[in-house]
């Protein structure tokens, strides 16, 4: 079976900063892969390369077996409709009301009228545990956790086939983090979506993941089923999941 999403030997540098050094990843349809790794190891850059927000220097990125790095604008537009993305910082449109944010993909991408889209947006907000009165507020009027949930609702509103979650639980309290984890699991189960998530929160990773991969210095150094994470036999992974300062990973301070 062709994987839903496949990266082969993806390289990306910014000047002399070599961020991705040959990333290999593959996700089966309907599965959930969580990529763990330290700050600044290129996790966000990897997702942005898949989305075409950054152009990789080298390597192949295939969606449903189709190469995407050489696509023209039209093909990329069509491809984009398959994707949903939860940005690390939320990236909510701060000049729009909450419901307009959630409805954005429906109105712009699927040419739905605003009147049709509004009740759907409110329904999606309810699905992430936000009451209807929030719909008419602006993002700046919400707490961080509420913003994350709005961003989540927006990312899944168009029922995308592949969803990317960039650190969905960072900066949230443990209970809210768990709520978000549940929502992600529910969203992807309901939609049957393939998901690629990024986190350094191990509780979150254990909950969301079918498979886990660890990125270090721009390369995937370990990958396997989520259940094997505690017996990876890989000293880097062990150090990371236990959160120890001592080990093969040296923080550049």
């Amino acid at each position: 079976m062709t994987p839903k999403l496949e990266l082969r030997g993806v390289y990306k540098s910014f000047g002399s900063n070599h961020v991705l050094n040959g990333v290999d990843i593959s996700i089966e349809k309907g599965k959930s892969l969580v990529v763990i790794g330290g700050s600044g190891t290129g996790k966000s850059v990897m997702i942005k390369s898949v989305l075409g927000l950054l152009n990789p220097d080298k390597g192949s990125i295939k969606v449903d077996g189709v190469e995407t790095t050489t696509m023209d604008l039209k093909e990329r537009d069509a491809l984009m409709k398959k994707f949903g993305m939860l940005f690390q910082g939320g990236a909510l449109f701060d000049s729009m009301k909450v419901w307009e944010n959630v409805a954005f993909g429906l109105v712009q991408g699927q040419s739905m009228s605003r009147r049709e889209a509004q009740p759907i947006a409110i329904e999606r907000l309810r699905a992430v545990g936000l009451p209807a009165r929030v719909a008419d507020l602006y993002p700046a009027e919400l707490s961080g956790g509420m913003q994350k949930r709005v961003a989540l609702a927006r990312a899944v509103a168009t029922k995308p086939e592949i969803i990317f979650f960039d650190e969905p639980t960072t900066g949230l309290d443990p209970i809210m983090a768990d709520v978000i984890n549940d929502l992600i699991v529910a969203a992807s189960k309901d939609l049957g979506a393939t998901t690629l998530s990024i986190t350094h929160d191990m509780a979150s990773a254990r909950k969301i993941a079918d498979n886990i991969a660890m990125i270090y210095k721009g390369k995937i150094i370990w990958h396997g089923p989520a259940n094997d994470i505690d017996n990876s036999g890989n000293p880097y992974v062990d150090q990371f999941i236990r959160g120890q300062a001592d080990g093969p990973i040296k923080m550049e301070i």
């Binding site: 989305l51 927000l53 984009m80 409709k81 993305m85 909510l92 954005f104 993909g105 991408g109 168009t158």
Partner: peptide, 8 residues
């Protein structure tokens, strides 16, 4: 970037 990912 978010605009782009929402097909706009």
């Amino acid at each position: 970037d978010a605009l782009t990912t929402l097909s706009t």
